[in-house]
């Protein structure tokens, strides 16, 4: 399968009064046609900046793409002018934001918000656009779409609005859909529905999806592959199975341990101790070293390269170095992995 998107060594910084915030520090990943890539990481790890850089939605100034390339179907988006980007946004790549309460225009009818990008990119007549908007509302599971299409956002519930937002994003059949924490602001039952919907849509439309979340728990259901981000870098990447059943980076272990349980019976929830690094002044070695109980001397001195675990599975931790002592993930994590396997078997 060919890559629809390839991000190579992307570096993004913000120039603030406090200094240069190196929000993204050399990120590499790719997305294949029709697949879903999940980007996971704590808040502030650079997920949004990475994906908004793809859309070139980063405000400049203060933002700046310091280096790297973003190849979408082979052409580098970094080199495109703003005018050229307008032809990519909405048409080739669309985006869904975290908070459905604020990401829709409160004074514009839902229908018009959906139609806008169709009319702009597909150059179709208003009446046709409206028909399509109703179809889309239907597709995202909004009942009575003929009526809903003429309503305003405040007449929709939170979950409904996120569905509507998805309809907006899907309006001109994008090749890549970026969903930036689309369920974070919603309550749990609605979360599950939206995830189902995204999966469903992908099946129907074969769109590639980048799914961003800080919650590993939701990843297993939706993603084909996972990229774990920390401190503006990707620290581990692999297929869902590889990352869940065979995690290598201590940060991934931490995420797994702190995962809110999907099943009530499970106990022991451990947040990762400490706080994320200061990106104005990033640490020298492994950015996670300070919070890593397995950290070795080298972790504080040298940045680990991406060690290959399998053809599809890589992780940036010195623990994978041949000289490193063999360590097992902590017991909680091992328990969880067992649990995942059981559940997968059940299915």
């Amino acid at each position: 399968m060919e890559n629809i998107l390839e991000v190579n060594d992307l570096k993004v910084s913000f120039n603030t009064f406090a200094g240069e915030v190196q929000a993204v520090r050399g990120v590499n990943f790719h997305v294949k046609k029709g697949e879903t890539l999940a980007i996971v990481g704590e808040s502030g790890s650079g997920k949004s900046v990475t994906t908004q850089s793809i859309m070139r939605l980063i405000p400049m100034p203060p933002g700046e793409i310091k280096g790297g390339e973003i190849l979408f179907e082979g052409t580098d988006l970094v080199k495109k002018s703003d005018k050229q980007m307008e032809k990519v946004r909405g048409k080739d790549i669309a985006m869904i934001f975290q908070d459905p309460m604020t990401s829709l225009n409160p004074t514009m009818k839902i229908g018009r918000q959906i139609m806008e990008s169709m009319i702009k990119h597909r150059k179709i007549a208003k009446t046709d656009a409206k028909k399509r908007a109703i179809e889309l509302l239907d597709l995202v599971g909004i009942p009575k779409p003929e009526q809903r299409v003429d309503q305003y956002p405040h007449e929709f519930s939170g979950g409904m609005r996120q569905r509507a937002m998805i309809a907006v994003a899907l309006a001109s059949d994008p090749k890549l859909l970026i969903a930036d924490e689309p369920t974070t602001a919603l309550d749990v039952t609605i979360q599950a529905q939206i995830l189902e919907l995204l999966k469903d849509i992908q099946k129907k439309t074969n769109t590639s999806i980048i799914f961003i979340t800080h919650d590993l728990g939701v990843v297993a259901n939706v993603a084909d592959r996972v990229a774990v981000m920390y401190g503006g870098k990707i620290v581990e990447t692999g297929s869902v199975d590889e990352v869940f059943y065979n995690p290598q980076h201590p940060y991934t272990w931490g995420l797994l341990a702190s995962m809110p349980s999907l099943d009530a019976e499970e106990g022991e929830l451990q947040a990762i101790p400490g706080s994320p690094p200061d990106l104005t002044n990033p640490p020298k070695g492994d950015a996670f070293a300070a919070r890593n109980s397995y950290a070795m001397k080298v972790d504080f001195e040298m940045e680990p390269p991406m060690f290959k675990v399998s053809d599809t599975h890589y992780a940036a931790t010195w623990l994978l170095h041949e000289d490193a002592p063999k360590v097992e993930p902590p017991a909680v994590v091992r328990k969880r992995i067992e649990h995942f396997k059981e559940k997968a078997g059940e299915r």
């Binding site: 939605l57 980007m85 307008e86 946004r89 669309a94 990401s103 225009n105 514009m108």
Partner: peptide
Amino acid sequence: GNDYIKTAKSKGLNSTEITVRHTIRN
């Protein structure tokens, strides 16, 4: 600074369209 302006931008609207249709009215 509102999210819906980002949404509008992500739809590929140019700055005039954004200002006229989304910013001014609100």
